[in-house]
Design a protein around this nucleic acid. Structure first.
Lengths: 199, 199
DNA sequence: TGTACATCAGTGAACGCGCGTTCACTGATGTAC
DNA sequence: TGTACATCAGTGAACGCGCGTTCACTGATGTAC
């Protein structure tokens, strides 16, 4: 072979990484494939050796970005961190200022909600995994209550982050983030929960 | 004059109304001016008799839609309705299913946050009016606390609505909306507040 | 009252441009005999 | 060992299309004299 083993997979990943950053920073519709491929060090024609269409790329980006986020959150929760650490990290000025490296849901959810059902289904499914991760840390009598509280928490997170991002006054944005942290904490347990394996 | 007095203003409003619906339903970037003008019963060339550019139209749409929302909310709060009525209306299946007639913030906030500062400033300013409307109904020791709680409430509203909209399972979306209502109510006062004029 | 001109909302063709997608081709490598 | 062929990641020009924007023009009305 002209290229070492795994070369094509690496290229595909590189395209996905570049697309992930640019989609989150500029929106899917605003990013053209030719420029994207140039950023990945390739020419436009090579795109279709890796993806069926732009929509296919969007789905790969979503799946990849959401998996990474879930893994990162699981890591924080597993190594002694608590849900508060997740919330404070999410509603940090750093995350607010860096959409292109941040949460794909906050950046693209309204655009994705206008995409085909197949694309939305990917998002739905990965979010469900995220909810499962944080639900045990939520306030609520039943598992079902905690699950819904987890959705509400995620709602506060993406909503507050978006409000902070659209604002033109940095001081106000910081306040919105801090208010969001307080509100989010109202939905969580004060002490780490036990999983069924712990009891 | 060829046209009765106020004709041009009426035309401009019609364009803004059509644009408002289509922008919210499809996203700003996905809507072309030619199609928009056709929907308004005009031809493409007439657009620039009313607006300096597409961006100018976006700013008119934002200002108009946000004003209308604020007026509608003020009406609910003034005629004996309470903040709970606002919350339940916002997180209703009806609002969830009709983005094109719904809240412009939930539909366009992430797109707007990538627009020029002038556009974002309009949004910021109108949201501030909305916050002033609902802050008296929020839980909090100080006016400043209530103001931040109002931002958090708005964060839950737009976040939960977006999560419900992106989902592909209607039953789950309904649950998300109901969970959002519960979480939102945690931030509000149980009884209507007094304004300084009442006391 | 009649005529010439100004006004102006709207028309519709045209502009250059970048979009997503297609495709014939390149050229370095591995394989067959 | 040497030669002919298959493989395949990537190239780059081209496709039709719709975009935002411009502009010369239309035609019904109001105004001036």
């Amino acid at each position: 072979m002209r290229y070492e083993k795994g070369h094509k997979d690496a290229t595909k990943e590189r395209i996905i990484d570049v697309a992930s950053r640019r989609f989150k920073g500029e929106g899917v519709a605003a990013v053209g494939l030719a420029g994207l491929m140039q950023d990945a060090g390739l020419t436009n024609g090579a795109f279709y050796a890796h993806f069926k269409s732009k929509q296919d790329l969007v789905e790969h980006v979503l799946a990849d970005a959401l998996d990474r986020r879930n893994i990162a959150v699981a890591k924080i929760l597993n190594v002694g961190g608590n849900i508060e650490a997740v919330i404070r990290g999410y509603l940090s000025p750093r995350h607010c200022a860096n959409a292109e490296q941040g949460c794909v849901t906050a950046a693209l959810i309204s655009e994705v909600s206008r995409h085909p059902k197949s694309t939305r289904a990917i998002h739905t499914q990965k979010i469900e995994s995220f909810i499962k991760l944080i639900a045990p840390h939520m306030l609520g009598k039943s598992a079902s209550d905690r699950r819904l509280a987890a959705y509400s928490l995620f709602g506060i997170l993406i909503g507050s982050l978006q409000l902070a991002r659209v604002g033109t006054d940095p001081a106000l944005s910081k306040q919105i983030l801090e208010g969001g942290i307080s509100a989010a904490l109202l939905l969580t347990q004060k002490t780490p929960s036990r999983t069924k394996n712990d009891s």
